[in-house]
């Protein structure tokens, strides 16, 4: 695969006081940080922490209620075509495996001959070539996730968002998916993923963002974080305690409705 970078990078990504609310509840609270080009980032935290929402805010699928999401490197260009996202539950178009990739490329305005070449290439690289003319929806769940990755890969994004890419996969399928992610990253794509699998975060991330109840409590290099998180909730999470059973400290007024 050729380099993913189409022109200058749209990174870094700045989040400035970003909040998001739905149904009267604030689900992301005042997140401010910068994602630089380069490292792989894993967003971790217990269920309901807002990991997926944070990814969607960065990707622009949802708009923040307050604050700003700025692709500092975009410099007037629309940042959307430089990004791609793979969802926790792979969305399979009711078409063949090939057509699933082809449709995505068509939406991005890639001309037909190049679409064909890119499709063949990513299907080969992800081991899906033998299913090329199969309907996507009869693939196994693991294969569907691979196809979702192949589809995103074919777009050659500068930034790839992955929402729990291996949730509910068995170890073998998880391994295969992680290898594909590594290959995509090797082609120059910035990886920003969520996971609730601490082992995966250790294997796959250079940088950890710890999210709890909508707040970004810690953002640190992976080695430092796993050596000893500064935040006490993050420490408890890394130790494997069930945070959601803990009584909330009353000093967090923002969580009160």
């Amino acid at each position: 695969m050729t380099d993913a970078v189409n022109g200058a990078s749209i990174l870094p990504l700045d989040l400035a006081g970003v909040s998001f609310a739905a149904g009267g509840r604030r689900l992301i609270k005042d997140v401010t940080c910068t994602f630089e080009a380069g490292p792989r980032t894993a967003v971790i935290g217990p269920n309901g922490a807002g990991k997926s929402l944070l990814l969607r805010l960065c990707h622009g699928l949802i708009a923040p209620a307050a604050g700003r999401v700025v692709w500092r490197g975009a410099r007037g260009r629309d940042p959307a075509p430089f990004q791609a996202m793979v969802f926790q539950r792979p969305v399979m178009l009711r078409r063949s495996v090939t057509a699933n990739v082809d449709a995505a490329l068509a939406l991005r305005g890639v001309p037909r001959p190049e679409r064909r070449a890119r499709t063949a290439e990513v299907l080969e690289r992800t081991g899906l070539a033998r299913f090329a003319h199969q309907p996507a929806r009869v693939l196994s769940f693991g294969e569907q996730q691979k196809l979702a990755l192949a589809r995103a890969w074919a777009l050659r994004p500068q930034v790839l968002f992955l929402d729990e890419p291996t949730a509910s996969l068995d170890p073998a399928a998880t391994h295969a998916v992680e290898e594909i992610i590594d290959a995509i990253r090797g082609a120059g794509t910035r990886i920003l993923m969520t996971t609730h699998d601490l082992g995966q975060a250790r294997r796959m991330a250079d940088e950890i963002v710890f999210l709890h109840r909508g707040r970004m409590l810690e953002k640190a290099p992976a080695a430092d974080f796993f050596a000893g998180p500064r935040n006490d909730l993050a420490q408890a999470f890394v130790r494997g305690e069930l945070l959601w059973w803990r009584k909330r400290p009353s000093r967090d007024p923002a969580t009160e409705p």
Partner: peptide
């Protein structure tokens, strides 16, 4: 079951 078929859309 998974044999390759010619493009059936046509």
């Amino acid at each position: 079951m998974r044999n390759r078929r010619p493009n059936p859309r046509s």
